[in-house]
């Protein structure tokens, strides 16, 4: 009788120690957050790569690109290891296969001229991740005002990085599409602020953080629109600062929605 309980204890104990090898089980919302973060980091990576190629803010960009690549990899790994839904698995496997070739192309991109072609691939990659996150909305049944607010903030983070890439690429005369992207994305942020500022400023969770973002954006916008002074270094620094403030807002929503 004693032995039976001892065996049960060891089997149970084994279960605990086996599970102790890995992180605790991950919520579906966390996987969705991972996917949306990947969309931000892929654009951040693009910005950093361009700055590294042009030897501008190189030390900062090098540290940031390491971080961005690691986060893309980490987040994809987490989704890959946790998700078994067949519909999502199709997206995950497609992204994993793409990453292999992308990694090689990223390493081979050495000049500003090569960058346009790389950015084309980055946007394909971005679209794949975005398709996966759209599918997650349905599979995980995510909807409601707070989810929409959270998505808006992630979208802003991504737009800031895209604006930084397209501003500098445009300055370097790389490709006309960068000029078009730049104008489009600046308009999107202006429209967002016009339509939704009040909602966020009055939000009990994020209201205290939102004014910092507005201040930063106004300063960035002034720099972006200045005809006299073209300063990509300032744009880079501002993109880091704005992302920090937006991430505070994002994290506040995440803590609430992940309960």
């Amino acid at each position: 009788m004693k032995n039976k309980y001892l065996i049960f204890f060891f089997i149970f104990y084994t279960g605990i120690t086996v599970n102790a090898q890995f992180d605790e089980s991950v919520s579906k919302f966390k996987l969705f957050d991972d996917a949306l973060d990947m969309e931000v980091y892929i654009q951040m990576l693009a910005k950093d790569k361009l700055y590294i190629i042009k030897n501008l803010k190189k030390e900062q960009a090098s540290k940031e690109i390491d971080y961005a690549l690691a986060k893309i990899n980490d987040n994809l790994s987490e989704i890959d290891l946790e998700e078994t839904n067949p519909q999502l698995r199709q997206h995950i496997d497609k992204i994993k296969d793409f990453m292999m070739k992308f990694d090689t192309k990223l390493a081979a991109t050495k000049t500003a001229k090569d960058f346009s072609s790389l950015y084309f691939d980055i946007n394909i990659f971005d679209k794949m991740i975005s398709d996966m996150s759209e599918a997650m909305l349905t599979v995980y049944n995510l909807d409601g005002n707070e989810i929409q607010n959270y998505r808006d903030i992630q979208e802003l983070r991504k737009l800031i990085q895209e604006i930084s890439v397209s501003y500098y690429a445009n300055l370097l005369n790389l490709n006309k599409s960068f000029s078009h992207n730049f104008r489009n994305n600046v308009d999107k942020i202006n429209d967002f602020i016009a339509q939704k500022s009040n909602t966020f400023l009055n939000d009990p969770i994020v209201g205290k953080y939102f004014p910092d973002f507005i201040l930063d954006w106004n300063f960035l916008k002034a720099n972006l629109q200045s005809e006299k002074y073209k300063n990509p270094k300032t744009i880079f620094s501002m993109s880091v600062s704005i992302d920090y403030h937006l991430k505070q807002i994002k994290d506040a929503y995440f803590d609430k929605l992940n309960k």
Partner: peptide, 24 residues
Amino acid sequence: LVMIENVYNNQNDRPKLLYSNTKY
């Protein structure tokens, strides 16, 4: 492993990326 080897042999210092790939 291919990605780990690329990072390891690359002249750019990417400890976070190496850690992420090896963790996977």
